[in-house]
Structures are given as structure tokens and as C-alpha cells.
Design a binder for these strands. Sequence first.
DNA 1: CACTTGACGTCGT
DNA 2: GACGACGCCAAGT
Length: 110
Amino acid sequence: MPPEENFFTKVFQVCKQIPRGKVTSYGAIAKAIGSPQSARMVGWAMNKSFSFKESIPAHRVVNRIGMLSGKKAFGDPKLMQQLLEQEGIPVKDDQVQDFQKYYWEPDGIL
DNA sequence: CACTTGACGTCGT
DNA sequence: GACGACGCCAAGT
């Protein structure tokens, strides 16, 4: 019995809750699911999210500085930036412009 | 089974 | 305020 899939579920749940045109940070999600020090796990889960059944808008999740750290995970680095711009989020140099403005704090599932 | 890597974050300099 | 080092957790090799 491997790991509790609940962890992934929580992360995915939060990701899905991200409103269109908004972005959040891994730490915020990690904190929302009750593991504030497991921000890395959130990112790792995101990478695995592509293998997940459901579609997860991982492009709305960036690191604390708003940098598209996992753009490579989309297959094409441009894809993530494109998706963000498509949702109305200006991205420049792999960084979200006015990140603080588009930042969205996820609701704790707990 | 032990070491390394990884979509991060915080503290210290 | 920028740069560097340490810390966390799990998966892959």
C-alpha cells in the first residue's frame, strides 16, 4: 500500500480550484493540503499529473517568484507560457508579470 | 538497500 | 535586495 493517493487528490483538487486567469505557488498549495514544507512534493505531483486521468491545469501553478519552473514538463516549454497568456496572464522571460496581482491563495481543503 | 535528483521554500550572509 | 547553503519528502536508478 503504497502511498496515499489522497496526497495527489488534494493537490489536484486545489489545482482545479484555481480560477482562470489566476496563478498560485507550490508552497501555497502545500500549505493548503497540510504539508507546508512539502512544496517540492506538490511540484512532483504536478509532473505526475500529466499521467493522471483527469486534466490538471498545472500551468496555473508556479513557484513563489512566479517563474515557470516546470514549463519543460509540458513537452514544449512554450506551451505553459502560451496557456498562461491565453488565460490573460502576461508572461515574460518565463516569469509571470504582476505575479502578486494574479496570485491566488488556494482554500485549505482541510 | 543507499545515493541522487527534483515543477520549492526559508534562513543566513 | 541578491546570492548561497540547508532542509523536506518521495521517486527513480
